[in-house]
Design a binder for these strands. Structure first.
Lengths: 337, 337
DNA sequence: CTGAAAGCGCTAACAT
DNA sequence: ATGTTAGCGCTTTCAG
């Protein structure tokens, strides 16, 4: 291999070392290393420098660079629950990819919703001169903005704070609800139950609104008795089975995939086939389950990756100065409809 | 609120500003801000400085600090799949918490296993003067170490590379397999089937070894016909149902929770009750499913959080100079046994 | 007890 | 076409 693998042991190779080795000044090295636009460097000199760089295994010190340039290449991401859900990971991933694409690096902090930790995390990011901070939650909700966030540019991801003036990137719950319902409508169903969550949230109201809109567009009267409450877990879906059976629905839109999973069990116990006897669509497109249920669950995806990516785009000012960005929730068709 | 909220707009408050405001030198400010051990600073001076800091809303510039100190407070974490699994998130979380505890900050990079991205990520970390790198995978396996990793301290997390000399932190698969089996043994089962994965891996061989050990310790002869192959997904578990029924087993240890989930379906279709008719244990303790199956699944947890945390401890030299750290997989008792 | 000054690795005018 | 020279914000001897 080439290079002397400096970096371990003796001090790291600096620009000055390269300059000395190439017999030029550090300014010259800086110019060739950064491929400066208006940099008139002789071909031979350039080559000498490049050789020295390769020879010594030189690596620029990003910290020194940002210090002298004044602007850093960090973007902070504070998340409330990296661990407890598969969702946060997708947000990180999207943010990561997008940041990278623009030459930025993510500084991630997990706070588990603890305000103390949250403040420390934000402080740490500020001390690292982040360009701005993405504040994200693992499920879509309204939040109280931590005071410290006002000290830098902030964009809210998967959450919002009305009146805070902070831009927010959130999933389009209403469109999602509409989409889910339309999938069922398209399959010919007219009597569609909606197993909605019992927890007040943008998801609860948004998806319901979407459900109604879809129905109306199809010329079907909204029937309140078709929207059934369910604790948003497998247990809730299972428990709701008698209700959906009694409702006479031929299809059901579940608040999320876990509810659908519970409902599958309940339906199966009653000898019903999906989708022959009754169709089911979920919401979230949760990896571990949706694709592997029997039959694989048709659902609507929560666009976490996109939320993260859009978040950094907004932070970088690439989306204009929007107030709220709503990201679409696309349908994922499998075999339960 | 106190402080003038500098940091937005006009240039950030520097140490020099504080010094000027307090009528002292920057050296003095540095001393009081960092609470330097051998720092003889008069009480009044100290207070003047502290007041100025509060007044101006001064924040130390972490980048400048590390530049002048030479050593950075960054630890890199490169992961192959933040997005596709809930597991990686736990590793990050554990690493994050532990790093934080020691005053370090995590630089996370997701590579999706792409070698090109991987190299860029490592380069970026090196340029940011990380103290070392945690290289992690989302499932336990042997890897080929990227060349670039040799340029800094590295610890492998949830993977290993024999002969590389790099320390590795991995789950104790054998103990896990033993534990799972023992849970069944303890419930009185003697004829225990093992639905093992068809994919060669430390998990495949380790868990099998643990299963055998547990059986032997209980004085039960190993019966090859009881270990059945299963694709490590719900589908595999479902498909294996006839086999376990034919085996005459009264309990089954599944290679992972998803297999158990599929098996649940298969068993239920055959009118079998869990655990009355047949007991089931899984492996992984996968959040979204294990706790919510009916009945909730007893399983063995993959200690991802601990892997991440132990990884940084090893990197910081807090664990002595170990070669391989095996982290225990604890049983999680629910209601399927 | 406090301040002056050198320097960390790099960039960016400004000279040459 | 290349070199000189200031800094960037902070730490750290070393004087006073």
């Amino acid at each position: 291999m080439s290079g002397t693998d400096q970096g371990r042991g003796g001090h790291p190779v600096t620009m000055r070392d390269v300059a000395k080795a190439a017999g030029v000044s550090v300014a010259t090295v800086s110019h060739v290393v950064n491929d400066k636009p208006g940099a008139r460097i002789g071909d031979d000199t350039r080559k000498r420098v490049q050789d020295a760089v390769a020879e010594l295994g030189y690596r620029p010190n990003a910290l020194a660079k940002t210090l002298s340039q004044g602007s850093s290449r960090f973007i902070g991401l504070v998340a409330d629950a990296i661990a407890t859900t598969p969702f946060a990971g997708q947000i990180i991933h999207g943010a990561q990819d997008e940041a990278w694409k623009h030459g930025y690096v993510l500084l991630v902090a997990n706070t588990e919703g603890n305000p103390g930790v949250e403040n420390d995390a934000i402080a740490m990011m500020l001390e690292h001169q982040v360009l701005g901070i993405l504040y994200s939650t693992w499920f879509h909700r309204e939040i109280a903005v931590p005071e410290a966030l006002h000290q830098t540019d902030t964009v809210l991801v998967d959450c919002f704070a009305d009146g805070s003036g902070l831009p927010a990137v959130v999933p389009d719950e209403e469109q999602g609800g509409r989409t889910a319902t339309e999938e069922l409508l398209a399959a010919g169903h007219r009597r569609i139950a909606f197993l909605n969550t019992t927890t007040p949230s943008p998801a609860q109201s948004g998806r319901l609104a979407g459900y109604r809109t879809a129905l109306e567009s199809a010329g079907i009267a909204f029937d309140e008795r078709l929207v059934l409450p369910a604790v948003p877990e497998q247990e809730g879906g299972y428990a709701a089975t008698p209700g959906v059976l009694a409702s006479g629905a031929t299809a059901v839109f579940c608040h999320n995939d876990r509810v659908a999973m519970g409902l599958y069990d309940g339906l199966r116990e009653n000898g019903l086939q999906i989708p022959a006897d009754i169709a089911v669509v979920g919401f979230d497109n949760q990896d571990v389950i949706a694709a592997h249920m029997r039959p694989p669950l048709s659902t609507v995806a929560l666009p976490h990756y996109e939320l993260g990516a859009a978040g950094v785009r907004v932070l970088l000012g690439l989306e204009g100065d929007v107030e709220t960005v709503r990201v679409a929730c696309p349908p994922v068709r499998r075999q339960s409809v």
